[in-house]
Design a binder for these strands. Structure first.
Lengths: 155, 155
DNA sequence: GCCATACTATTATGGTGCATAACAATGGAT
DNA sequence: ATCCATTGTTATGCACCATAATAGTATGGC
């Protein structure tokens, strides 16, 4: 009975052993996040938005007169970084920062009309990006993914 | 029969409406990635490693004599950024870059003994971080998460 | 009223990872 | 010899993250 012989050495295609990485959560979290970020960026860029800026607009609309410290906490960014974001958004006429009455420390944030208009465009682009991202997942998988991400994020 | 009366207005706790963000893949990908990165960083930092540097060591060990371009592709980073990483690792005596014989363009990468030793420590720290990250997930959920992340990453 | 303390926001600075473009050197093809 | 592709390097910029130092403003204890 003819035993299967060892095949002749094939022309060596440079092959990379990816095994050390492909079961690492950290690695795939990085790649998935980057893919998400890029997809979002592509849609938002033409509008002059970034994921971070869109987050601000979304939460300011949902929470009119929110203070900066609270907004930073909700976005999970540092207040010092939010300051810079807001300064630019205000400069561009997308948000307003009004001193809280009776407390000249705190700023109350609101969208301007231009901010609301841009936000609507941003939401559309964001929804398209989101659809694109989840295109390869069944709805149930997407839900499970969100749950898992929330847990890992420590929400 | 006493109807339940409207409760007196409670002392207003500042509450934030997070609804606009909490079903957004992009947002939770960012937070989860950051959590993963921080967890890894905490473990690797004391060793003088970062997630990126560990990735290099892992793949160089698994693929001795790999060229930089191929390694960059496997790690999904740009060759230009890999150059900087490698220069530092070589400086610290963790890897060697040898010209390919008969092709003075290409560099062949190998771990030094010190590199292998450090990698072993890094792997331990990485495994601990990985356990910590997945602590709140059932094994099946972790597997499903990896699958979903790979799809989103476009693997 | 006064003072120590906490809160709010800002500024400055540095570190990631990522991307692009310009360049230099080398090797191969014709 | 010339053109082109490969390989790696350098320089630069962006988005995001983190820390520390500071200024101005309330608040509570006394």
């Amino acid at each position: 009975m003819a035993l299967p012989r060892r095949l002749p050495a094939e022309p060596r295609v440079e092959q990379t052993d990816l095994a050390p990485l492909d079961d690492k959560l950290g690695f795939w979290l990085r790649l998935a996040q980057q893919s998400g970020f890029d997809t979002l960026q592509r849609g938002l860029g033409p509008l002059g938005l970034t994921p971070g800026r869109l987050g601000v607009l979304l939460l300011v609309e949902a929470n009119p007169d929110i203070r900066q410290a609270l907004l930073a906490e909700a976005l999970r960014i540092k207040p010092s970084n939010l300051t810079v974001l807001l300064a630019a958004l205000e400069q561009e006429g997308l948000i307003r920062r009004d001193e809280e009455e009776g407390n000249r420390r705190a700023n109350r944030l609101r969208l301007t009309e231009a901010g609301r208009a841009l936000l609507r465009q941003g939401e559309e682009a964001e929804a398209a990006a989101e659809r694109q991202l989840a295109a390869r997942l069944r709805p149930a998988d997407r839900a499970a993914l969100l749950t898992a991400l929330r847990r890992i994020a420590g929400g």
